[in-house]
Design a protein around this nucleic acid. Sequence first.
DNA 1: GTCTATACGGCGATAGAC
DNA 2: GTCTATCGCCGTATAGAC
Lengths: 205, 205
Amino acid sequence: MSKVDQSTECKIREAAKRVFLRKGFGSATTRDIAESAETNIALVNYYFRSKERLFQEIFRESFVETFVPVARILNDDLPLEAKIYKFVDHMTELLKRDPLLPMFVLSEMRGENSEFCETMAELHDVSSNRFKIQLEEEAAKGNIRNIDFDQVEVSLMSMVIFPFISMNMLKIKKNMTTEQFYSFVDDRKKTIPEMILTYLRHPGK
Amino acid sequence: MSKVDQSTECKIREAAKRVFLRKGFGSATTRDIAESAETNIALVNYYFRSKERLFQEIFRESFVETFVPVARILNDDLPLEAKIYKFVDHMTELLKRDPLLPMFVLSEMRGENSEFCETMAELHDVSSNRFKIQLEEEAAKGNIRNIDFDQVEVSLMSMVIFPFISMNMLKIKKNMTTEQFYSFVDDRKKTIPEMILTYLRHPGK
DNA sequence: GTCTATACGGCGATAGAC
DNA sequence: GTCTATCGCCGTATAGAC
């Protein structure tokens, strides 16, 4: 087997990721995936037993192994300003490589029924405890204002992630090409930390 | 026909909205909708001809007739600070009534193929031109810093809308009840405008 | 490991009785 | 307007030849 020729299993896995990210679990079909992997339905089920199991693998790989490690940057041992810049930069670069990832993860959690909430149990490991403590310490020292940690964290996540979720709408509304969109989110690597830090450093009324 | 008894057509429309918002177009079935409306499949097709047409009606009603008018607050004739507070307040109240609406609209725009981008043409009407001009005027007067309008607008939208998109994840991660979540977004009616306004009023380095 | 053929169910949509 | 019955299609999954 040559170097460029991947194993069938790997081709199916990559095809599944492409299709699931673009269409979601409900709208993606085994036929789509088999075709995209240049193979047939039987082999998809041979390697992964069912569409459901295949999806679970892709979901875990995308969320737990890709997204979560970057989110953990907030627990790194870094000064506040450097940490926020690093987080926004790394998360933006991750999402530029996989722009459909946030919508993929979040859209599978609608209705609160989903079995994917099980996978979410691992999320409790993502608690940003050290980031929270860091902000509390800075506030105690009088370096930043007193704030509700959750408000700051959610604002930060929102500003980084939401543009990718609304990418297609943004491109239509602002008449953006894909390149212009990427340039826009690159600019946000500066805007977002500035906005958060300016807010933190100036006292409320 | 009594007052409390709605017409069948209306019952189907309401059921369709419930089901589509919870599951999305791909995963919702005509059978779901019929059952939720306490009627049968034949009547769904009798009144709306097809699942596709029914969906288009719900989508238009939810997006163009509900969401867009609130977004237009940014074009109202109001002082900057009052306008931002009003926008965040109204949008938050709208989303508290229909928390699944943002995910519903945005998830149907994945893959950039979708025919719903046609409906999006009406979105060009939502251009926030007057808000943009207002910010430019305030900057010219030296009241706020010079900024990229799109960056500010997207940040504002992100911070208001994203918590509802990630509602289920947030509730799991922060161990929130639904009531606590609503209380959290109510607090954001103050946090978000403060963050935006603090950023605007303090010059960059 | 790989393919063809097929089983089986659920889907959207409609015909036709009332 | 409303319902039952049914058609034809496409989905997942598997059996069995190679």
